[in-house]
């Protein structure tokens, strides 16, 4: 164990925040709010550290002879220019918004375009990799929903619209709720393990 003090602080803070959520006592609620505000400030700081980490990684790559170092140089140039423009003129200035509207949004939109192709390819690959009943049901459901979401050249196939609504309302919702219940139990278990000190993501395992 690295330091039992860290573990004690983590367990204590976790218990106060958990109890402050369930029990409506002023002292607990106020303590919970203060602790969450501190955590918010800490998380915002880690965002800045994240940017610094990104910069250091790509600085190393661009200054050494590594494959695709051009990408790292482009990233560093983009980061510096965006930071400079938004820092100097402000994030809502037309110059900053120009970068956002004409560079960032088109890049993300093109990635979304690529994503649709990748997803179709993944569907085909799924049938080749695991040609079982589950995969067939998965692909058939996706195709039915896709067919009924688009206009389908104005052709109205009787029963398909109802089928789509039924799939959306009954099996899809039932499956999603089942998965979410399992996920919720997993979340509680992970949280309790940390509160008990059995898991220490803050170091000291």
């Amino acid at each position: 164990m690295r330091n039992p003090v860290y573990t004690a602080i983590a367990i204590g803070v976790g218990i106060v925040v958990l109890l402050g959520y369930f029990l409506q006592f002023d002292l607990l609620i106020n303590l919970r709010i203060i602790l969450l505000e501190w955590a918010t400030i800490l998380v915002a700081t880690t965002l800045l550290i994240g940017v610094v980490n990104l910069f250091i990684v790509h600085w190393r790559k661009s200054t050494t002879d590594q494959p695709n170092r051009v990408n790292s140089i482009a990233l560093l140039a983009g980061l510096t220019i965006t930071l400079g423009v938004a820092g100097w003129f402000g994030p809502t200035d037309p110059y900053s918004l120009w970068i956002f509207n004409y560079i960032l949004i088109p890049i993300e939109a093109s990635l979304m375009g690529i994503l649709s192709v990748v997803l179709i390819y993944a569907g085909v690959r799924l049938l080749r990799r695991k040609p079982n009943l589950l995969s067939i049901v998965f692909i058939a459901t996706a195709v039915v929903i896709l067919l009924m979401t688009g206009p389908l050249f104005g052709i109205d196939i009787p029963g398909l619209a109802e089928l789509r609504i039924w799939i959306g309302k009954v099996p899809a919702v039932a499956g999603a709720r089942g998965i979410l219940l399992g996920v919720s139990l997993g979340i509680i278990a992970a949280g309790l393990r940390i509160l008990m000190g059995a898991d220490r993501p803050y170091g000291g395992n």
């Binding site: 800490l42 965002l47 550290i49 994240g50 940017v51 980490n53 803050y202």
Partner: peptide
């Protein structure tokens, strides 16, 4: 950011 720091720590 915070996950990155925790992964380095781990």
């Amino acid at each position: 950011g915070s996950l990155g720091i925790l992964s380095q720590d781990t």
